[in-house]
Design a protein around this nucleic acid. Structure first.
Lengths: 127, 127
DNA sequence: TCCTATGTACGAGTTTAATCGTACTGCATG
DNA sequence: CATGCAGTACGATTAAACTCGTACATAGGA
């Protein structure tokens, strides 16, 4: 168990980019397309990822392994990339790991209510 | 402001099935799945169909040809069926034509806000 | 320095979906 | 009753996406 996911500060809506790695390539807010976002969210695994980020994360970014998904790493890369390219998540490189968080403000401004729908979703087979 | 998509339930939630043809097979309200609905809405053509039904229809069902889509008939059948099987539209057979309307109440009760997102959507290339 | 852990890149196999031509059904009207 | 019309059913083709194995890159620590 190496380090747990512990990290220090309670911040997260961090205003200062100086100590933060640059986000990976992503669409700007104005470029978000409803059909693309819906397509990205139509996959149960990705829906679960976004929902977990919304519900279980306090205010931090989370790395791939935090989600506890039993899929090959290359599959996870695929889905995290799909979410980022659709504009749903933002990813930053922290040393080795690539951490994600949901672009809640961007999504709420362009598609109000959508984030709440995902948060209220119940997975098909999870107790 | 223009009306939001809500309009009076006076008509449209027709209570009497006696003078109405039976709806074609469709999922019940409780069976609606967010991932399926989002998948059905991730297609621009279907998004356009649903949006037109929401905005331009008064309270009636509309047949395939009403939409003015320049696609082969078999393609339209495919998409209308996808919408119905996802639970987004209801279809009834009126003599020759099969008319559709959006299950607004069902969608609002299970996925509040989703219908408004579709109504507010702007097609990629339509003037 | 080597080793491990995190994650990517690439490529192949499989599945799913979109698109559409053609043939068909059934009503409705002349 | 024959013709036209609205739409489906079926099948083939094509394109996209999911899934995953393998190989590779890198940061951090023993």
């Amino acid at each position: 168990m190496s380090a747990t996911v512990r990290q220090a500060p309670v911040i997260k809506v961090v205003p200062e980019p100086e100590n933060l790695p640059e986000p990976l390539p992503e669409p700007a807010v104005g470029e978000l397309r409803l059909e693309t976002v819906l397509g990205a969210l139509s996959d149960p695994l990705r829906l679960r990822i976004v929902r977990k980020l919304l519900l279980d994360s306090e205010a931090f970014d989370h790395s791939c392994g935090w989600f506890g998904l039993d899929r090959p790493k290359s599959s996870l890369t695929h889905h995290f990339k799909a979410l980022r390219e659709a504009g749903i998540t933002r990813q930053r490189q922290y040393g080795l790991e690539r951490r994600s968080h949901v672009r809640v403000d961007d999504l709420n401004s362009r598609f109000p209510g959508l984030v709440d729908l995902v948060a209220a979703w119940t997975p098909p087979d999870t107790p």
